[in-house]
């Protein structure tokens, strides 16, 4: 077996094993979007009127609208959780083991990314099954066509987490990531409300939402669940993924990035 493949399997397996051992993390990953779906969406259904916008061809309930955003939310939190794990790994020293492997660093980081993406995807499918039981269903092919969208989204958000982890010095600083990355990314997106709604209240906020890569990821998932293409969202998410991964590889370069700092 190729050394590259051997390392990939080992790193993905380790990420999966760690995830399985942390049952609380799995439950939290599901409870969070379910609270939004079952409580928040129920309350907002009456308050928020939705017009028919693509990919929808008829009026939809608010619960249906926010499911793609909640899929994105699962992946966003998972990406940041992986980032937290990396900062922790660095503090306890196990990151050194990975970084002193003779395989290229960009490959090792990509393996980490693929591992966290695989876990995110399992969580999203578990959530979609629960949403299905709740009565929110998609065209059958949508469950398959959403897979590439989830892979791309997972890679993009995982790469963002990876990049952040290379610049966060200590675990204690991670709270800042919650306040300055997760919440703005989530709320300044089309996850909870369509962008035209945002434009009604503020053009500036609308423009910020439109530039947010998470908005494009959510729209990519939304269209993919309806087995419909969305080239703009695909291109924007792909571009963001490449940018974030490049930043992460730069951040972990021993000559430039975080590893130059002591610790």
């Amino acid at each position: 077996m190729s050394p590259y493949l051997t390392a990939l399997i080992a790193i993905v397996e380790r990420e999966a094993l760690r995830f399985v051992q942390q049952r609380g993390r799995f439950i939290a990953a599901l409870v969070r979007p379910l609270v939004w779906l079952l409580v928040f969406a129920a309350g907002f259904r009456a308050a928020l009127g939705l017009s028919i916008t693509p990919p929808y061809q008829t009026y939809i309930q608010y619960e249906t609208y926010i499911v793609p955003g909640l899929c994105g939310m699962i992946m966003l939190f998972n990406g940041m959780q992986s980032s937290l794990g990396l900062v922790y790994d660095r503090e306890v020293g196990s990151m050194r083991l990975l970084l002193t492997s003779p395989l290229p660093r960009w490959w090792l980081l990509t393996c980490k990314l693929l591992g966290s993406t695989a876990i995110s995807i399992c969580q999203v499918y578990a959530f979609l099954i629960i949403a299905d039981l709740y009565g929110i269903r998609w065209p059958a092919p949508g469950y398959l066509t959403v897979l590439p969208a989830l892979i791309l989204t997972g890679l993009m958000l995982g790469a963002l987490g990876l990049a952040l982890s290379s610049f966060i010095k200590q675990l204690e600083n991670f709270a800042g990531v919650m306040n300055f990355v997760i919440f703005p990314m989530f709320f300044l997106s089309s996850a909870l409300y369509p962008l035209w709604k945002m434009a009604e209240s503020s053009e500036l906020l609308h423009d910020i939402c439109a530039a947010n890569p998470f908005t494009h990821a959510v729209e990519l998932i939304r269209f993919a669940l309806h087995a419909a293409p969305n080239p703009t969202a695909t291109a924007a998410t792909l571009l963001a993924a490449i940018l974030f991964l490049g930043l992460a590889i730069w951040g972990y370069d021993p000559a430039r990035g975080m590893v130059r700092r002591k610790g």
């Binding site: 050394p3 051997t6 390392a7 399997i9 790193i11 051992q21 083991l97 003779p102 395989l103």
Partner: peptide, 18 residues
């Protein structure tokens, strides 16, 4: 939380040994 063997297996894989 891993066994001694699994820890070593992971390291071996990082060196491309399987």
């Amino acid at each position: 939380d891993l066994t001694v063997y699994r820890n070593l297996k992971y390291f071996a894989a990082l060196h491309g040994i399987s």
